[in-house]
Computed example of a mutant assay.
Amino acid sequence: MAAGMVALAPAEAQSGSPARSGDRNSAPLGSRLQGVQHFGVTVQNMDRAFEFYTEVLGGTEILRDGDFKGEPVHYTILADQEIDAHARKVDPRTIGVPDLKGGSQRLDVRFVQFENVVIELLQYRDAGQPMGNGDSWAEPRAHMSPAYPRSMHICFYIRDDVNFDTFITDLEAECARRGMTQVRANRTIAVRTEDERRAAPASTNTIKIREGASNGWSLIYCKGPEGEQLEFVQVLAPVKQTFADALDRRRQILAGRG
Rank of each mutant, 00 (worst) to 15 (best):
A49D: 02
F50H: 13
E51R: 08
F52W: 07
F52V: 06
Y53V: 04
T54F: 01
T54L: 02
T54Y: 01
T54Q: 04
G58E: 02
G59P: 08
G59V: 06
T60L: 13
T60I: 13
E61T: 08
E61C: 07
I62S: 12
I62W: 05
L63E: 11
R64C: 00
D65H: 08
D65N: 09
G66P: 02
D67G: 15
F68S: 14
F68W: 15
K69Q: 15
K69N: 14
G70D: 12
E71P: 12
P72M: 08
V73L: 13
V73R: 07
H74I: 07
H74M: 08
T76D: 06
I77Y: 05
A79Y: 06
Q81F: 12
Q81E: 14
Q81G: 09
Q81P: 02
Q81K: 15
Q81D: 11
E82V: 12
I83L: 10
I83G: 06
A85E: 03
K89W: 01
V90S: 00
V90P: 00
V90G: 00
P92R: 05
P92K: 04
P92A: 06
P92I: 04
R93E: 10
R93K: 14
R93F: 03
T94D: 06
I95C: 04
P98S: 04
D99A: 05
L100I: 06
K101E: 15
G102Y: 05
G102I: 05
G103R: 09
G103Q: 09
Q105D: 09
Q105S: 12
Q105Y: 03
R106P: 02
R106Q: 09
L107G: 01
V109K: 09
V109R: 11
R110V: 14
F111C: 04
V112Y: 04
Q113E: 14
E115G: 12
V117Q: 15
V118F: 00
I119F: 07
E120I: 01
E120T: 02
L121K: 00
L122M: 13
L122H: 05
Q123E: 08
Y124V: 10
Y124S: 06
R125E: 05
D126N: 15
D126K: 15
D126M: 14
D126I: 09
D126H: 14
A127M: 09
G128V: 10
Q129N: 10
Q129A: 13
P130R: 07
P130G: 09
P130L: 10
P130W: 07
M131S: 15
G132E: 02
G134W: 00
D135W: 03
S136C: 05
A138T: 07
A138S: 11
E139T: 12
E139S: 10
E139P: 01
P140D: 05
P146S: 06
P149M: 13
R150Q: 15
R150G: 08
R150N: 12
S151K: 11
M152I: 13
H153V: 01
I154L: 12
I154Y: 03
F156T: 00
F156P: 00
F156G: 01
F156M: 01
Y157C: 10
Y157W: 12
R159G: 11
V162G: 04
V162N: 04
F164N: 02
D165V: 07
